[in-house]
Simulated scan of single mutants.
Amino acid sequence: MKKYILLFIAIAFLSGCDKDTYNNNNKYLPNYNFSIDIDTNLPLYTPLQFTANPVRISQAGIGINGIIVMNTGSGYTAFEASCPNQALSSCSGLTLDGINVVCNCDNVSYSLFTGLASTAVQYPLKPYRVQVVGQNMIRVYN
């Protein structure tokens, strides 16, 4: 009987886990599938070899308005380059500001380490998956 109770508790616990933290159900930002391999030996991406040097990638088909990738010192983060709390428009792009990005529509600042805003907002930055492939290759995908 105790085995069944433990099994029930384990199933209940595991079913409550969020299996897809990268699909944040943001009503402003659609989920587009993409994948990009980034070679950090290339001059455009060499800042990613060092901590706290974000790179914006605005290649067509990568994210909605591009992506922003940063080496955090313990790994990499990648976020959508669109304001997470604004409908897509001409002002909804993010501007790099050191280790933060700022939404051009409402001037809210977001950390590229955590994706969280400096003020209370509904949505954090939209994260993308990052996989280190080899010594100098990073794959970012949704």
Rank of each mutant, 00 (worst) to 15 (best):
22 Y>P: 00
24 N>Y: 14
27 K>I: 08
27 K>N: 13
29 L>H: 09
30 P>W: 14
32 Y>W: 11
32 Y>D: 13
35 S>T: 05
35 S>Y: 06
37 D>P: 04
41 N>T: 05
43 P>D: 15
44 L>T: 14
45 Y>S: 02
45 Y>R: 08
51 T>C: 12
52 A>P: 09
54 P>R: 08
56 R>Q: 13
56 R>T: 14
57 I>C: 05
57 I>F: 08
58 S>I: 12
60 A>I: 02
66 G>A: 12
67 I>W: 13
68 I>M: 09
68 I>W: 07
69 V>K: 15
73 G>W: 02
73 G>V: 03
74 S>E: 02
76 Y>C: 08
77 T>C: 00
81 A>V: 05
85 N>G: 11
85 N>Y: 12
87 A>M: 14
90 S>I: 11
92 S>K: 10
92 S>M: 05
92 S>F: 04
93 G>Q: 15
97 D>Q: 09
98 G>L: 04
99 I>G: 13
99 I>T: 15
100 N>C: 07
102 V>Y: 03
107 N>G: 04
108 V>R: 05
110 Y>M: 11
111 S>H: 08
114 T>G: 07
117 A>M: 09
117 A>N: 03
123 Y>W: 08
126 K>H: 11
127 P>L: 08
130 V>G: 05
133 V>Q: 06
135 Q>C: 00
136 N>W: 00
